[in-house]
């Protein structure tokens, strides 16, 4: 796990992030005023997600149209703002449509890992017992593999395509989240308000739903945001190795892999998607980091 111990921050900070609710404009404005830096990051991240959704409609041309008479057109060529690649395909369109795939392929498994991690963490942490033991032993085993190797192994089992790569990333991201959330649940369970609820005779699921889940969610979201940042890089890496997105589809990793063969002729073809991957990953990393920090800022003061 990157960054300071998140469980520790979440517990000792006690100041959980209040995500703005709809219809409460004043509260939102106040929140934005208090968290300027984070608001900017959130806005950028939101813009990226919107971009990922609308990408096919804003691409100026057909990203897969091969025109061999127009290979390697330089940047700022007429009709091809980003030039063309080694098959004469419009590079701007490829970057836009590729970005959609890259971002989606990072977000979906991160979200999946968060949901799976929440389910496992809550069940395991709250109920304990043999369920906990079994789940934790499985998670121990999964955590004993380095992340990328686990993912590669799983892609090999499931078969090489983008959907399987995303499933593999999700499975790869789950154990870490589950483990972290479980320890948080364990600590929350000891707290007076949970004990009070138990005494008042509430059922296990209701306690999880009303008392524990709301306290765990902010950390889960923060973890997910950080995971998005690695998963965007990881999916690009998989595609780069030929284990993720495959031509004729292309994400940024595929673009880098394709451009690698032409690096002395047109280095920018490799550099542009590299920078974009780094940039998107950067935004999500900083955002997740900021979320996590907010959880623990009380402590630093």
């Amino acid at each position: 796990m990157r960054g300071p111990d998140p469980v520790d921050s979440a517990l000792h900070g006690g100041n959980r992030v209040r995500l703005p609710g709809t219809g409460r404009t004043a509260a939102l404005a106040a929140w934005v005023g208090a968290n300027r830096w984070m608001s900017v990051l959130l806005a950028i991240a939101a813009a990226m997600m919107v971009f990922a959704i609308v990408a096919p409609w804003i691409a100026p041309g057909d990203p897969t149209e091969v025109v061999l008479s127009q290979r390697y057109l330089p940047l700022w060529s007429e009709g091809h703002a980003m030039g063309t690649d080694h098959l004469g395909r419009d590079y701007l369109s490829r970057l836009i449509v590729g970005g959609r795939l890259s971002i989606m392929a990072g977000l979906i498994p991160a979200f999946g890992a968060m949901v799976a991690g929440l389910v496992i963490g809550l069940t395991s942490g709250y109920f304990g017992g043999w369920v906990d033991s079994v789940l934790m032993r499985i998670i121990d085993v999964l955590l004993a593999f380095p992340f990328l190797l686990l993912v590669i192994l799983m892609v090999a089992v499931l078969g090489t395509d983008i959907r399987n790569a995303m499933i593999a990333l999700m499975i790869g991201g789950t154990p870490g989240t589950a483990r972290t959330l479980r320890s948080l649940v364990l600590s929350i369970k000891q707290r007076p308000f949970v004990e009070a609820a138990e005494v008042s005779g509430l059922g296990g699921w209701r306690i999880i739903q009303h008392e524990i889940f709301p306290n765990v969610l902010p950390l889960a979201v923060a973890l997910m945001t950080i995971q998005m940042s690695w998963m965007i890089v990881a999916i690009a890496g998989l595609s780069f190795l030929g284990l993720g997105v495959r031509p004729p589809d292309a994400d940024w990793g595929t673009l880098i892999a394709e451009a690698r063969g032409h690096i002395f002729r047109a280095p920018y073809l490799a550099l542009i998607p590299s920078v974009l991957v780094a940039l998107v990953s950067f935004v999500f990393f900083v955002l997740g980091d900021a979320l996590q920090r907010t959880l623990g800022e009380e402590r630093v003061r």
């Binding site: 091969v66 098959l87 090489t160 004729p248």
Partner: peptide
């Protein structure tokens, strides 16, 4: 077919076009 690297090579993409 899945050769090492890309199964869909430049020639196949051109053929598709």
């Amino acid at each position: 077919w899945l050769a090492a690297g890309t199964p869909v090579d430049d020639n196949r993409l051109f053929m598709q076009q």
